[in-house]
Amino acid sequence: MATETTETPQVTGPTPRSPVRAAVQDTLGVGMGLFPLGLAFGVLLTQSGFAWWWTPVFSLLIYAGSLEFLAIGLFLALTPLASVALTTFLVNFRHVFYGLSFPLHRIRGPLRKAYSIYALTDEAYAIVATKPPQQLSSTRILAIQLLCQSYWVAGGLTGALVGAALPAGLDGLDFALTALFVVLAIDGYRAARDIPGPVLALLCALIALVLAKDQLLVVALGLYVATLAARYLLRKRNSRHAQ
């Protein structure tokens, strides 16, 4: 069950010279998913009766994709602020797990750290956490996060401003986000070489899909963390027995 962790990271392709250029390369795939999703958000927001400039305001203040989509309905229904807080807590609870393995210690300066925490989305976590931390400079991580947010805001603005005039053939482009997570799962496996992890994660996700489709992320992540805790305790007990 236990797997060895190697110190040598899997490097794909040559290491790019500048950290910003590396960040552009890191985020191109995500951008393909974030831009169309932002676009869909901008279209939806303006179609719900909001002025176009609310799109960047939403994306700068909330900056959490799935929550922004939910917020439209919540706000139109004048949901009490306490319920808004509770919904946010439940929908974004998964971000608590991200901090456990996000290399914030690589980032220099309190303001930059604060931005990095603020901009710690699914996508930013996905790109950063699947790379060996020693390859990630402070600038590269921040550039990755700034670029991700720009794709999202640019998509939202485009959707809000051009909205209805978009060609219909573009639907399905948001599959890029799924493809991105597939790619990052494979990269993550290559870095850690842990087989039980992804298998258990898939089981957790399928259980959550059947039991609590609307809360899939929180339930699946909670279950997965529980399996990790169990694995860790088992491993500790086994190594104690071996001594």
Binding site: A126, T178, F181, G188, Y189, D194, A201, L221
Partner: peptide
Amino acid sequence: RDSPVVGFLADTMPTGVMVILVVYTLR
């Protein structure tokens, strides 16, 4: 930071979370 638990989580969390996100986007 240097505890074995955090090291274990850093190795096992990302891949699993990505798998879960794949299922989530296809829900």
